[in-house]
């Protein structure tokens, strides 16, 4: 099974129009600004994570990719929504991984050897971090100041924390990878809202035609990004 796209109406609508020049001419920002406003008025309701888990993912992903002078962070870009939606795909159920036993641990360079799919890693990992956080800081992760959240993430990354059955480092890498996916994937999947991730990098998105820009002697590419659904920045 391929991962399913989550907005069938929008997708089929766009598919029907993509070949036409008038679509590219007419699909200005207006309709998409309206769509984004509608999303803001009705915040995303997670379907995999519960409220506490979702607050954790929002808070932790924001520390991994924070808002700063360069532009928006993971929270504003919708990385948490992206991750929640990904949890409904075959990827999150480990269906593309070899998950047959026995599960035997070995040297790190021989790769992942746990019996857990991404959904399990999040369930167990978040519970483990919340437990660790309450024990050491007396509060849930999302309620801590950024400095302490960073301390916890640093400990996870460094491998000094075990989250029950899940090594902290494994959970950290899963969260980092999915956060960055949610920051930079096409907005089709719920993240990279307003193409904010791509604008920061200067990535033109679905343009996919650079015949005139193969060598412009180091000049920056001049056009703003466009998404698969035709959203422009």
């Amino acid at each position: 099974m391929e991962p399913t796209l989550n907005r069938p109406l929008r997708r089929s609508f766009v598919k029907g129009l993509l070949g036409t020049t008038s679509f590219w001419m007419a699909s200005g920002n207006a309709s998409w600004t309206a769509a984004l406003a509608a999303e803001a008025a009705h915040p995303y309701q997670p379907t995999f994570f519960d409220t506490m888990e979702y607050r954790f993912v929002e808070a932790a992903s924001e520390r991994l990719f924070p808002a700063d002078d360069n532009g928006p962070g993971a929270k504003a870009l919708g990385a948490a929504e992206f991750i929640d939606r990904q949890m409904q795909t075959p990827y999150a159920r480990g269906e593309n991984w070899y998950m047959s036993g026995p599960f035997q641990q070995g040297p790190a360079n021989l790769g992942y050897q746990l019996p857990f799919a991404p959904r399990d890693l999040y369930r167990k990992g978040i519970a483990g971090v919340e437990h660790y956080t309450r024990q050491h800081y007396g509060k849930g992760f999302a309620d801590l100041p950024a400095v302490q959240q960073d301390e916890i993430l640093t400990a996870l990354e460094g491998g000094s924390v075990q989250l029950g059955e899940v090594p902290g480092r494994v959970f950290f890498e899963q969260l980092r990878t999915n956060t960055l996916e949610g920051t930079f994937a096409d907005p089709l999947y719920g993240g990279n809202r307003g193409l904010g991730g791509w604008i920061m990098l200067g990535f033109p998105g679905a343009k996919a035609d650079f015949m005139d820009w193969v060598n412009q002697e180091g000049a920056p590419y001049p056009l703003a990004p466009v998404s698969i659904a035709g959203e422009t920045a």
């Binding site: 391929e2 593309n96 991984w97 070899y98 070995g106 040297p107 790769g111 992942y112």
Partner: peptide, 30 residues
């Protein structure tokens, strides 16, 4: 990223070790 055109390891993969005295472990993720 999700490796649409690549081998589905859930069906078949390889095991890997560095040296003959090690136990080879499955290549579980591409």
């Amino acid at each position: 990223v999700r490796k649409r055109l690549f081998q589905n390891l859930s069906q078949s993969t390889v095991t890997i070790r560095n040296t003959m005295d090690q136990t080879a472990l499955p290549y579980r993720q591409l």
